Amino acid sequence: MYETVLYEVRNATAYITLNRPETYNAFTEQLNKDLGSAVKAASRDDSVRVLVVTGAGKAFCSGEDLGGVSENMDHGEVLRSRYNPMLLEIERCEKPIVAAVNGVAAGAGMSLALSCDFRVASEKASFVEAFIHVGLVPDAGNLYFLPRIIGHAKALELAVFGEKVSAEKALNVGLVTEVYSHESWEEDVSLFADRLAKLPTKAVGLIKRNLRASWSSTYQEFLERDAQAQRIAGKTDDHREGVQSFIEKRKPLFTGK
C-alpha cells in the first residue's frame, strides 16, 4: 500500500511503522507523503480508534535524510511542501495518536514524536534536538509543541544545547508518559493502545480539539466551546452507555460512537 511505511490494523488500533531502517527511518519526500496518507486513512476508518506511530529497526526516526540535502536547498520550501501537509494530517486527526518511540528520535523525528498526543518510550529510546548541531532551528512544529509539553525554560535548554535526552530523563521532565523495558516493549505498547481504544473516542477527539483551542481563546470564548463540545458528546452512544453503566453499577463498554 505504501512504499516507506507499514500499515496494519489490530484491535481497533492502526499501527503505522516508518520503514526505512537502513537510514534509521530518516525522512524523505516519499516518507512524508506516505505517513500523511496513512494517518489520513486511519482517521477515516471507523474501525480504527487509536493510531500508533513507531519505527522499524533500532530507531524511531533520525530526522531528515541528509543524503538528500544540497547546498542550494530552500529549507523553508521543503517544510511547506513536504512536512506541513503531513503534520496537518496529524493535527486534523481527532483520534488519539501515540508515538511509540523505540529508539532515537532526532531532529524532525523528535518533532514527529512531539506532534503526537502521547509519547511512550523504550528504555533504549532517546530524544535529540539535533538541529543546532548543523546550524539550524528546530522545525516541523517542534518549538510549537515542546514548550507546551515541558515548559519554556526546559524547551529552550533542549533546543539550544541539543543534548541527548535519555528515556528516563524524558519521563522525569514530562516529555513521555511511560517508559517500557526493551523485553516487553511490543506488549506494553499494545496494552497502552488498547487502553485508549476502550475509551469513548468521540469524547477524546473533543478533548483534543478544546485543549488546542484553549491556547488561543479568551475565557468567554472557551466557555462557549465547552458548551458546544458537551452538546456533541451528550448525543453520542458512548455517553448513553456511560450513564446506563453507572446506573447498573458495571464497567461501561464504549464503542467509539
Rank of each mutant, 00 (worst) to 15 (best):
P138M: 07
V101S: 07
N102L: 03
I150F: 08
G162W: 05
D139Q: 15
K124W: 12
S122K: 04
S115C: 05
N102R: 05
S166T: 13
V104L: 11
V120A: 02
H133W: 00
A153K: 04
V165G: 03
N102E: 06
P138L: 11
V128I: 11
K164I: 10
L136P: 13
A121N: 06
F127M: 04
L143G: 13
K164H: 11
A105T: 01
S115N: 08
F145S: 11
F127A: 01
A125Y: 06
S111Q: 08
H152M: 15
S166W: 03
G162I: 13
P138R: 13
L146V: 09
V120N: 06
F118P: 08
K154A: 15
K124E: 01
F161Q: 15
A113W: 09
G141P: 02
A121I: 06
F131Y: 15
A130C: 10
V98G: 05
N142C: 14
H152F: 15
I149Q: 03
F118I: 01
A105V: 02
E163K: 13
S126Q: 03
A108P: 09
G162A: 12
D117G: 01
A159L: 03
A108V: 12
K154L: 14
L146P: 02
A106M: 07
G103Q: 11
L158T: 06
L143E: 15
V101Q: 02
H133D: 14
F127S: 00
E129A: 14
K124G: 05
H133C: 06
A108Y: 11
N102Y: 09
V134G: 15
A130E: 13
G151F: 13
L146W: 00
P147V: 03
F118M: 11
S115W: 03
H152K: 15
D139C: 11
V165H: 01
R148I: 03
I132A: 13
S115L: 01
L143C: 14
F118T: 02
L158Q: 10
D117T: 01
I132T: 15
A121K: 07
V120R: 04
V120P: 04
A153Q: 08
A155M: 02
S122T: 03
L114Q: 07
P147F: 08
F161I: 05
P147I: 00
G107K: 09
V104M: 11
G135I: 01
A140H: 09
C116K: 07
V128L: 13
V165C: 02
F145R: 13
G135P: 01
R148N: 09
E163H: 10
L158M: 14
A105E: 11
S122E: 11
E129N: 09
V128Y: 10
G103I: 06
K154R: 14
G103D: 07
P138D: 02
E123N: 01
E129H: 14
G135N: 00
I132E: 11
G103K: 07
A159D: 08
A113M: 07
H133K: 14
A113G: 02
A99T: 07
M110L: 13
